[in-house]
Nucleic acid binder design. Structure first.
Length: 581
RNA sequence: GUGGCAGUAGCUCAGUUGGAUAGAGCAGCGGUCUUCUAAACCGCAGGCCCCGGGUUCGAAUCCCGGCUGCCACGCCA
C-alpha cells in the first residue's frame, strides 16, 4: 500500500491526475472536520459552478474513478452534501504510514521533498550596539531563528545574517561621552552595556544642551566616519563589547548567525548606490537630499525614499540598498527575508520597489524580497511598551525571571531530582516559555507584554509540550526500550484515542504546508499543542505497559512517532526537549 | 489628509485563504491519581464573529459604505 508523507498533497495530485476534468480543476484537498472524515476535496463545487453543472453528479463520476485506483486502496471515499468528497484513512493505511516515516530524518526528508531549494538570506534580530537587548528584540530574534530553521529543513541553503545597528548617529554622542568621562573601555565593569547606555544618555543630554555642544557631538561622528584613528578605536571597542553581550543572550536562546554584517560593513559601498540610482534616473535631488519617488504609487509619488541626506551622509535606506546588492552578488541570494516590525512596512515597500526598478535597469538578477512583519510589543495600556519607570524590560531579566519561576515549580513538583537537573529543567522550561509565548501567537498581531502571560506555565505553553515529551520518554525508560524498538507484530490501530493520535501524526505535513504558506510559525505551535493534547488523551485512556504484545507494539509505535514529530517541531521552534520534568 | 493593521466567548487569542453545526487556553462549575509523571485527563457552561448593505449553492473570511483602536508618512532605524 502506497502512503503519502503529506496525505493532503498526495490526494491533491492523485485526484488531479485521475480526473478527466479540464485543466483548471483543482481538487482543493484539506483537513476535514473529524465528523465527516480525515480529508476532504471541495474542488468540484467551484468547478461545477463555473460551468453551471451539477456538482453532485461530477463528484459521483470522479469518485467512481478514484475507487478503482490502487493509490486509493487504503482510503474510504464518499460524497456528502452538494459535492464534498470525504476521505477516511484506514487503520492499515495509518500503520503503514508509521512504518514509512519513523525518525526525525524521515520527517525532514518528507518536508524537503516539497521544498524549492533556494539560497535564502534571513535578516533578523538586528539589535543596536551599545544598547541592552530588551523585550522589543525578542520577536525578530525568535521568529527569525525559527524561520531559518524551517527553511533549512525544507532544503533551502539558509544564510543567517545579523544586520546590527553599529554605524548610527548614536556614536557621536557615545564617543563624546566616552572621552568626556574618560571611560576606560579596556577595563570595563561587569555590566559594560549598562555603562555604555548611561554614557549615551549623558552624551544625549549634552547634545541637547546647546548648539555649541551639539556641534561638538556631531564633530565626533564626522571624525569617526572620516576614519579618525582614535574614534575608530573607541567604536571598535564598543562594538566588540556589544557583540559579547549579544552572544550571551544568543547562546541562551540557541541562536547562531552565519554572518554579522552590520551597517558599518556597507559604509564603503554606498557610493555605487548613489551613482547607479542617479545614472538610471531613479534618484533625484530634493531639498538637498537624494531621494527616489515612485510616480505610479499613490503615496510614494510624493513620499520620498531618502537615500542620501542633505548633509551628505547615508542612512538606513542607503545601507539597505547596498546590502541587497551584496547579498545577490556576493552571497548568491535568490531570496531575502526581513524579519522586522510592521511599523517599517512603508520603508520595505519603498526599498523593494526601488530595487526592482534599479535591478531591471542594470540587468541584475532580482531576488525574491519579503518583509516578514510582526506586531509591536505593547504595554498593558495598549501603548508601546515601557516599564513604570519609563524604561524597557531587559531580555536578560525576563529570561532570569522565567527561569526562577520555573525552578520554584519544578522543585515543588519533583523535589527528588538532583539539583543540577532541576536547574537544567528550569532553564529549558523558563527560556522555552518566553520563546513559545511569542511564537505561538500570530506574528502579525500586536503583542501585549505581560509578565504573567510571558511566564504562564499552563495551557498552550512550552511546558505543556515538554510534559508530553517527558511522559513519552518515561514510558520508554520504564519499558527499557529505545524509541523504535518493540514494534514487531503490531496490529492496526483500534481505539478512538489511537486512531485520533495516528491521524494527528499524519497531519504533520499539511500543518507544515500551512506554516510555509505565509511563514507563520504559530501554526506549527498550534499543531504541536494539538498533538500534545491528542497524545495526552491517548495516554490517559490507553495504557502501553502491561498490554498484550500486539497492542503494546502498536502503542509503542504511536509513542515513538509522536516523540519524533514533537522533537522535530520543537527543535524548529527552538525548544529544548527534556527527559524528565 | 493618504495608506497599513486590527475588532470573534468575561479575559487572551486560533480559525488551514469562500466550505458542512465558529474553536482553544485562562478564569468559573463538576468529576478523575494503590497502575507508564495529576505541569495531566474527562465533562458542563459560555457567541449580534464591530455595524449596515452586496456578491452566491454557501461569508468570521471576498466587495462597498460606516464606527472604533493602533501604526506609518523628509533627512532616526
Amino acid at each position: 500500500m502506497q502512503t503519502w508523507f503529506n496525505p493532503a498533497r498526495g490526494l491533491e495530485e492523485a485526484i488531479a491526475s485521475l480526473s478527466s476534468l479540464e485543466a483548471d480543476f483543482r481538487p482543493d484537498v484539506r483537513i476535514a472536520d473529524p465528523r465527516f472524515g480525515d480529508f476532504q476535496a471541495n474542488g468540484v463545487l467551484p468547478y461545477a459552478k463555473a460551468r453551471k453543472a451539477n456538482p453532485r453528479a461530477l463528484a459521483t463520476e470522479l469518485v467512481s474513478k478514484l475507487r478503482g485506483n490502487d493509490a486509493f486502496a487504503g482510503l474510504s471515499i464518499d460524497i456528502a452534501g452538494p459535492g464534498f468528497i470525504n476521505f477516511v484513512l484506514s487503520p492499515a493505511y495509518l500503520l503503514n504510514w508509521m512504518g514509512d516515516y519513523k525518525t526525525g530524518a524521515d520527517l525532514a526528508r518528507g518536508l524537503a521533498a516539497s521544498g524549492s531549494h533556494e539560497t535564502v538570506v534571513v535578516d533578523y534580530s538586528s539589535p543596536n550596539t551599545a544598547k541592552e537587548m530588551h523585550v522589543g528584540h525578542i520577536r525578530s530574534t525568535v521568529i527569525g531563528e525559527t524561520l531559518a530553521r524551517l527553511l533549512a529543513i525544507r532544503g533551502d541553503k539558509v544564510i543567517r545574517d545579523n544586520h546590527i545597528g553599529d554605524w548610527g548617529t548614536q556614536f557621536g554622542m557615545l564617543i563624546w561621552a566616552v572621552k568626556n568621562e574618560n571611560y576606560d573601555l579596556d577595563h570595563p565593569g561587569e555590566n559594560v552595556i549598562g555603562e555604555l547606555q548611561d554614557l549615551y544618555a549623558k552624551g544625549y543630554a549634552h547634545y541637547k544642551e546647546s548648539d555649541e555642544a551639539a556641534a561638538k557631538v556631531r564633530e565626533e561622528l564626522v571624525k569617526l566616519q572620516n576614519g579618525d584613528a582614535e574614534n575608530l578605536a573607541i567604536w571598535e571597542k564598543i562594538t566588540s563589547a556589544s557583540k559579547g553581550a549579544f552572544d550571551k543572550i544568543y547562546a541562551r536562546l540557541d541562536i547562531h548567525f552565519d554572518l554579522t554584517l552590520g551597517e558599518s560593513f556597507y559604509r564603503d559601498k554606498v557610493e555605487r548606490i548613489y551613482r547607479e540610482l542617479t545614472e538610471t534616473g531613479l534618484a533625484v535631488e530634493s531639498d538637498g537630499a537624494l531621494v527616489v519617488f515612485h510616480p505610479e504609487h499613490k503615496r510614494f509619488a510624493t513620499q520620498p525614499f531618502i537615500i542620501r541626506k542633505a548633509d551628505g551622509a547615508s542612512n538606513y535606506a542607503t545601507t539597505d540598498l547596498a546590502t541587497i546588492l551584496y547579498r545577490v552578488e556576493e552571497l548568491g541570494a535568490t531570496d531575502i527575508i526581513y524579519v522586522v516590525d510592521s511599523r517599517q512596512s512603508d520603508h520595505f515597500e519603498q526599498l523593494f520597489l526601488t530595487v526592482e526598478k534599479w535591478f531591471k535597469a542594470k540587468g541584475y538578477r532580482l531576488p525574491r524580497l519579503r518583509h516578514v512583519s510582526f506586531g509591536t510589543v505593547l504595554g498593558e495600556n495598549g501603548k508601546p511598551f515601557k516599564t513604570k519607570e519609563g524604561g524597557t524590560v531587559k531580555l536578560r531579566d525576563l529570561l532570569d525571571e522565567a527561569v526562577e519561576r520555573s525552578l520554584t515549580i519544578v522543585t515543588t513538583k519533583n523535589p527528588d531530582l538532583p539539583e543540577v537537573e532541576k536547574r537544567q529543567i528550569a532553564e529549558a522550561v523558563g527560556v522555552g516559555s518566553v520563546r513559545y509565548a511569542d511564537l505561538s501567537q500570530n506574528r502579525t498581531s500586536d503583542y501585549v507584554f505581560s509578565w504573567d502571560k510571558m511566564l504562564a506555565l499552563e495551557g498552550n505553553t512550552a511546558p505543556y509540550l515538554l510534559y508530553a515529551v517527558a511522559r513519552i520518554r518515561s514510558i520508554f525508560r520504564k519499558a527499557e526500550l529505545a524509541p523504535g524498538q518493540g514494534e514487531e507484530g503490531a496490529l492496526p490501530f483500534e481505539t478512538p484515542e489511537e486512531l485520533a493520535l495516528a491521524k494527528k501524526l499524519a497531519a504533520f505535513g499539511p500543518a507544515m504546508d500551512a506554516v510555509f504558506g505565509d511563514l507563520r510559525p504559530h501554526l506549527l505551535a498550534n499543531y504541536l499543542f494539538e498533538l500534545s493534547g491528542t497524545f495526552s488523551s491517548f495516554y490517559n485512556a490507553n495504557r502501553v505497559m502491561g498490554e498484550a504484545a500486539p497492542v503494546k507494539a502498536r502503542r509503542l509505535i504511536l509513542c515513538a512517532r509522536t516523540l519524533a514529530v514533537m522533537e522535530t517541531g520543537m527543535n524548529l521552534l527552538g525548544l529544548r526537549v527534556l527527559e524528565r520534568m
